Amino acid sequence: MAFENPTRDEIKRLLEDSQVIAVVGLSDNPERVSYMVSEAMQAKGYRIIPVNPNADFILGEKSYASLKEIPEKVDIVNVFRRSEHTPPIAEESVAIGAKAIWLQLGVFQAETAEIAQNGGLQVIMDRCIKVEDSILLPQGKSKS
Rank of each mutant, 00 (worst) to 15 (best):
D56N: 14
L26Y: 04
E31R: 11
D9I: 00
A65C: 07
N29T: 07
S27Y: 07
M41T: 03
V74S: 08
E16S: 07
A98V: 10
A90D: 05
E61L: 10
I58L: 13
D56L: 11
G45W: 10
N5K: 01
W102C: 06
V107Y: 04
A43W: 01
R8S: 08
E4I: 05
I135N: 08
Y46C: 06
I49E: 04
D56I: 05
K44W: 10
E69D: 15
A98F: 05
A22C: 08
A2N: 04
S134M: 13
A116I: 11
S134H: 10
N54L: 12
E72S: 10
R127V: 01
V131Q: 05
V33N: 11
G140Q: 11
E92I: 01
V74H: 09
Q117F: 06
E16Q: 12
D17G: 07
E39N: 13
K73Y: 02
P50F: 13
S66N: 15
I76P: 02
L67H: 05
S34A: 14
L26G: 03
I76F: 03
N118E: 15
L136H: 12
D75I: 02
N5Q: 03
C128Q: 12
S63G: 10
K141F: 07
V94M: 04
S144F: 07
A113L: 09
V37P: 03
K12D: 02
Q104H: 15
E4G: 00
V123I: 11
G60R: 07
L136K: 10
G45Q: 12
E61F: 09
P30L: 03
E4P: 00
K62V: 14
G140V: 12
S134L: 13
P6T: 01
E111S: 10
G45S: 11
A40K: 15
T7L: 02
E111D: 14
R82C: 00
G120H: 11
K73V: 04
A90C: 06
S38W: 05
A90L: 02
P50I: 14
P87Q: 05
V24P: 02
V131W: 08
N29H: 06
Y64K: 09
Q139D: 15
E91Q: 15
L15F: 06
S63R: 11
Q104R: 09
I76A: 00
K141S: 12
N54Y: 15
R32K: 14
I124S: 08
K141C: 12
Q104F: 06
M36W: 00
L14K: 01
Q109V: 03
A22V: 09
E92W: 01
I11H: 03
F80Y: 13
Y35K: 07
P87R: 08
S18E: 02
Q42W: 06
P50V: 14
D75M: 03
E4C: 00
A43H: 09
E16I: 10
S142L: 14
I89T: 04
N118F: 03
E132Q: 13
P53M: 13
E114M: 13
K44P: 05
A40D: 14
A65T: 09
V51M: 13
Q122K: 14
S134R: 13
M125S: 13
N78G: 01
I129L: 14
G97Q: 11
W102E: 07
S83L: 01
V33K: 04
V94T: 06
G60K: 08
D56G: 15
G97F: 09
F3N: 01
M36P: 00
K73A: 13
N29W: 04
R32D: 08
E10V: 00
D126P: 05
E4M: 03
